[in-house]
Design a protein around this nucleic acid. Structure first.
Lengths: 203, 203
DNA sequence: CCTACGATGTGTACATCGCTTACATTAGGA
DNA sequence: TCCTAATGTAAGCGATGTACACATCGTAGG
């Protein structure tokens, strides 16, 4: 593409760095995202990216922000207008699938220790938060949206991470989907049991 | 301590490395855990730790395993014999508090990408898993222990991570505790609402 | 036309890192 | 007492993040 011209200047190195970073993450997710590797991939000198990103953190934050946006459309694609708990469960499955399909990207988004005040990041995560809250409000109009949104997001996020870390069985997508469904359904099913529990003295 | 002797051999460098690593994590959690820094802290040459840890991963895994064990006693201390959902919520709060008190250690335990087949790690996480399942079985004798354990652990784990990443308000311990309580209670409170939901066609 | 300038990429350099290989020191059993 | 294995040291390789000076290029003003 930009190889034919092969001019001194790249044209759009900023975007090229992002693309290169994503490619590297997908090719070898276990390797740390290195600024030099990104530069190599973009066919540019090791320090060129510094013209567009203040430091490695800035690049990582940009990648993460892009990941958030992709996650949003991914979830929206899973169900355009969720209205029932079952729809919500489908979206939960999509969330976990997203994490397992792009483990490296997901780790960059949530596990990487980086500037939490990055404007792009804050905006992107706020968007996800709003999205979740909107769904919860639609599905459970009578519940406290704040509390339930937090609960749902945390549950799904925790499932994603435990799967990612191999703490749960993630052998096949079907197994994972079933597990997520079960967990989310369990969230909606324990309450009746509660009535039976009369705090039996343990010990 | 071992400075007075100052002999060529350290005595117990293995343990000293672990201790040094923990100190470094607590002093500057944002910095990556470096093997050389650990060696410096232990007052030893940069390559000495390699006699006791095959590579950086092994050190990290050892630190993580120690963290798992500490988490277990921390949770047990929060409530020795949990029997009610309220007790379980207290333990959930303790879990999140543990994460926020030792953010760097918690990240090493769960966010760091390292050998998931480390024997020590596997054993330690299995122990936590058993612990959670035991509590769930005691508190909800009639529920499916597998599913509900997964749900509870994922919920609490997700809460911890979202707090750690600044995605939720973690300004004061009280706020966090209240939020965790609310979320966990929400887990037990949505079911009645469910009966009202009859899948209204969203449009 | 051409020239100076700002934006962008290059080259060099330095400190740090993980890790390997070869060597030094010491403790403890034969 | 001496030998051996365990343990720590020294030196070095390749890679990384980042700072600095320099090269190149599109472009606006003369």
């Amino acid at each position: 593409m930009s190889q034919a011209g092969a001019s001194y200047h790249h044209g759009d190195l900023r975007a090229a760095c992002l693309r290169a970073a994503r490619e590297l993450l997908e090719e070898d997710g276990s390797a740390a995202l290195s600024l030099r590797a990104v530069a190599r991939r973009a066919g540019v000198s090791p320090t060129a990216p510094y013209r567009h990103y203040a430091d490695r953190d800035a690049l990582v934050s940009a990648v993460a922000a892009q990941g958030y946006r992709e996650l949003a459309v991914y979830l929206a694609a899973a169900h355009p207008a969720p209205a029932t708990p079952g729809d919500l469960a489908d979206i939960a499955v999509a969330y976990v699938r997203f994490a397992l399909d792009r483990p490296a990207l997901f780790r960059v988004m949530f596990a990487e220790q980086c500037d939490p005040t990055s404007e792009e990041r804050v905006a992107a995560t706020a968007a996800i938060w709003e999205y979740v809250r909107g769904i919860v409000r639609d599905v459970f109009p009578d519940a406290d949206p704040e509390a339930l949104s937090t609960t749902v997001w945390a549950l799904v996020h925790g499932l994603a991470f435990l799967h990612l870390d191999g703490k749960l069985d993630a052998s096949t997508p079907e197994v994972v989907a079933a597990q997520v469904h079960t967990a989310v359904n369990a969230l909606f099913a324990v309450s009746p049991v509660l009535r039976e529990v009369t705090a039996p003295p343990a010990g």
